[in-house]
Design a binder for these strands. Structure first.
Length: 223
DNA sequence: TTCCTGCAAC
DNA sequence: GTTGCTGGAA
C-alpha cells in the first residue's frame, strides 16, 4: 500500500471514530492567531479562559491589544500559563501585524505564502507550529500543521522511520502525500490531536484505538 | 505527579 | 542538547 493510501485510510479511521472536529473554535481570524500563541504547550481548556478574559476586557482586536499595557495583558492571560512570556509574544505579533499590514489580517494573508511564513517565523515567539496554525486556521492556506503528536503517532506506525526528523521534513511528508486541500488539512491535524490526547499518549492506551493498521500491527505489546 | 494543539535562550 | 516559562485538570 502506498503512503497516500495509508494516510487516507488513517484519516478515514480517525474521522469515523472522532467525527468532524470543527477547528478552529473562534469568532474571528484574529482570535485564531491569538489562540495559536496562547495554546503553545498548553491545554486548550485553559486558553479558553484567557480568551474569555480578553473578550470581556474588549482587547481581542489588533488596535486594542496593541494599546493595552503588557502587564495588564499578562494578568488577563494568566489562566493559559506562561503568561509573562506569552504577553510579550502577543505584543510581538500585533506589533508585526500593525507595522507591516496596518493591523489588517486580509492584507497579511494576501502576501505570498512562502514569504509570509518566513516573516511570521521571524517574529519572536512564533515557531513553525504556531506559524502554520495561523496560516491554515486563520488564513485558510493549505499548509499542513505537524506537532509532537504527529511525530509520535506516525513513528509508532512506522510511517516515520527517522526519529530525528525535522519539523519541515515531517510536514513535507504529509504535503507530498495528501491533496492540497484546506478542509482536509484542517480536519486531519485536529484528528491527530484527538488521537494523541486520547489514545496515542506517551504511555499508549491502545485499547479502542481507531486506527486499523495499528491494531493489525499489534503495537499494543510495546509500552 | 503528569501533561498540555512550543519556543527561545543558554 | 538542556532549561525556563506557568496555571489548571486528571
Amino acid at each position: 500500500m502506498s503512503y497516500k493510501e495509508r494516510l487516507l485510510n488513517i484519516y478515514s479511521d480517525l474521522l469515523g471514530h472522532f467525527g468532524q472536529q470543527k477547528w478552529w473554535p473562534a469568532e474571528t481570524r484574529f482570535e485564531v492567531c491569538v489562540g495559536a500563541i496562547l495554546t503553545q504547550n498548553t491545554a486548550w481548556q485553559n486558553v479558553e479562559k484567557a480568551i474569555a478574559n480578553l473578550k470581556k476586557e474588549g482587547v481581542l482586536n489588533p488596535q486594542r491589544l496593541r494599546e493595552v499595557s503588557i502587564d495588564k495583558l499578562a494578568q488577563l492571560i494568566i489562566p493559559s500559563g506562561y503568561y509573562n512570556i506569552k504577553a510579550k509574544r502577543l505584543k510581538e505579533f500585533v506589533g508585526f501585524l500593525c507595522d507591516r499590514y496596518n493591523g489588517d489580517l486580509d492584507m497579511m494573508f494576501s502576501d505570498g505564502v512562502d514569504n509570509l511564513r518566513d516573516s511570521l517565523l521571524q517574529v519572536k515567539g512564533i515557531g513553525p507550529e504556531t506559524a502554520d496554525s495561523i496560516l491554515l486556521y486563520a488564513g485558510y492556506i493549505p499548509i499542513f500543521v505537524v506537532d509532537a503528536y504527529t511525530k509520535r503517532i506516525f513513528s509508532r506506525l512506522n510511517l516515520v522511520v527517522d526519529d530525528d526528523i525535522s519539523y519541515d521534513e515531517l510536514q513535507s511528508f504529509f504535503m507530498r502525500n495528501l491533496t492540497q486541500n484546506v478542509p482536509l488539512f484542517n480536519e486531519y491535524h485536529a484528528l491527530i490531536v484527538m488521537l494523541g490526547k486520547n489514545y496515542c499518549r506517551r504511555k499508549p492506551k491502545c485499547d479502542g484505538c481507531p486506527i486499523m493498521e495499528c491494531n493489525l500491527r499489534d503495537i499494543k505489546k510495546e509500552s
